[in-house]
Amino acid sequence: MIRPATSSFHLRTTDERLAMWRAASQRVVPAAVTIALIVATTVPVFVSVPIVPDLGLLAVIVWTSFQPRLMPPWLAFVVGATADVVTGTPLGVDATLLPAVVIFVRLVSARFTVRRYAFDWLFASAVIVGAAIVEWRLLAFTGVVGPLGPLLVRAVTTILAYPAVVALAARVERRLAAA
């Protein structure tokens, strides 16, 4: 008799079922961490220039470059739509931007085998600045017309926050691997 590679749910033992749920719940962790970071950026700090880094974008970039399977484009879409609703940007701006970032990062990192920290940071910086410019145009498309300057200021703080988000993502990944 040929056993299928994955047995159906009712044929499994309790342990196997628990393991399955555990594995499934682990796939939710990156998205949950990313959304928590987005909520954290709504901290009630009022400065006239947007200095709070775009942690959601950073988290998406970091997950995509280190664990591409855990941040597929559709998940980036869900994260982006959440970010739009939570931060008050017109719905669709981040929901388009984040999947596009994921696709771009996947395409490019498939061509580079360099895995040096400085290189990753530089690459992420380029993506962040590019994303700021694209976001500027997307916002203008939905009717929020403004200068590019504030977005670039935020891009700089986002680039500076890269090491912190990498450290957080690394911790979460280590916990996931140990679990």
Binding site: V85, P90, G92, A95
Partner: peptide, 27 residues
């Protein structure tokens, strides 16, 4: 799936442009 996701995002953008108030309840 990727193409569909991008298309959905763009659709949301167009909706935001046409009628910014359609997500009031959600927001």
């Amino acid at each position: 799936v990727t193409g569909a996701v991008l298309a959905t995002g763009l659709l949301l953008l167009v909706l935001s442009r046409i009628n910014p108030a359609y997500t009031t309840r959600l927001r």
